Amino acid sequence: MTSFTIVAGARPNFMKIAPIIHQLIQKKKEGIPVDYRLVHTGQHYDKKMSGDFFEQLNIPEPDANLGGGGGTQAEQTAAIMVAFEKELLANRPDIVLVVGDVTSTLACSITAKKLQVDVAHVEGGIRSGDLSMPEEINRMVTDSITDHFFTTSEKANENLRKSGFEESKIHFVGNTMIDTLMAQLPRFQKPEGDIFDKLQPGQYFVMTMHRPANVDQEHKLKAMIEAILEGTAGLPIIFPVHPRTAKNLQSLGIHASNLLMSDPLGYLEFNYLVKNAKGVITDSGGITEEASVMNVPCITLRDNTERPETIELGTNELVGTDPAKLKPYLDKIMAGDWKKYQEIPLWDGKTAERIVDILIKAYPSSQ
């Protein structure tokens, strides 16, 4: 029996693991001797941040929840490592599979390697070059001890080669986020609530902001939102508000009839809004991938990105964090003069299938 431990801890992880779990379940049905444990680290413990995803993405309940949420990044990392060590000692797998670049990815990779358990990193090799981002440190440290890299782009492959990793460890497979997107597209649903009922397709924007560079300095956050309001000509702006941002917005006293703030949304509801939006304004990496594949104009409020393929072949533009630079991009969206999605290699909905096939071959059934 080939045994996997699959780790998820934060909202983006669930979209990435769902198709892998579905593939493993399918392999078991076909009589292939594989088994897995799903470990939820508890890094995000708000129901909208994690709980809904198990139901919406048809993921079985976790085999273990480590309860590692809360505290500083160091406290969270330590809590997850202590709990995950106990999990691995009690249930030792052939390989630990981590995804993305969150605290759980780093903590569980280190713990596994110290117990001499191999690590596979889904979304390995991506880099922003910005060491002020905790995610960049998580990526670099995780990749430094990874045994198998599953990459989303040729650029990620190049990054790993430059770091001296053997070609045999690098597997260019595509993007499991897009597997989930394609599988769930027919199930997207309009969110419930008065603010969503009057929305017309192609006549509103979706906005997300959560990065400290954008939301932790009140004057900068206010200037950014004012620039967005000015450049969107009164169209509704749906803003599912991250808890940190909500706190800062309260003290700013920003009020506009077309700025429609909501609680965090489930996966199916949020992507329904993105699919039907005139444009997306975000500082998230994952949303740029989804918007690109759905051919929705996307503005990224960051000075760098670890996903250059969304700019080169997708619908994403890197605008930066200066509110003064927004207007020409918003003008282009308003005028309908935006670039179209060109297909990104291997973003075809079959990534998880490739990952599972490679791992089963690399870790044949153990006795």
Rank of each mutant, 00 (worst) to 15 (best):
T2L: 08
T5I: 09
I17C: 07
P19M: 12
I20V: 15
I21F: 08
L24R: 03
I32C: 10
D35Q: 15
D35M: 11
Q43C: 11
F54W: 11
N65V: 13
G67S: 09
G70H: 07
E75N: 06
T77S: 14
A79K: 15
I80R: 01
N91I: 12
V96I: 09
V99Q: 09
G100A: 10
T105V: 11
T111E: 05
T111S: 15
Q116N: 14
E135S: 03
I145N: 07
A156H: 06
N157D: 15
L160T: 05
R161W: 13
K162S: 15
K162I: 15
S163N: 12
K169T: 11
N175F: 05
F188E: 09
I195K: 10
D197T: 13
L221F: 05
K222A: 15
A233W: 00
A233C: 13
A233N: 13
G234K: 00
P243T: 11
L252Y: 02
G253T: 10
G253M: 02
H255I: 10
N258I: 06
E269C: 09
L273R: 01
T282E: 02
I287E: 04
D303P: 04
N304V: 12
T310M: 03
T310R: 03
N316T: 09
E317P: 00
L318P: 01
G336L: 01
P345N: 08
K350V: 00
I355L: 11
S366R: 11
Q367R: 03
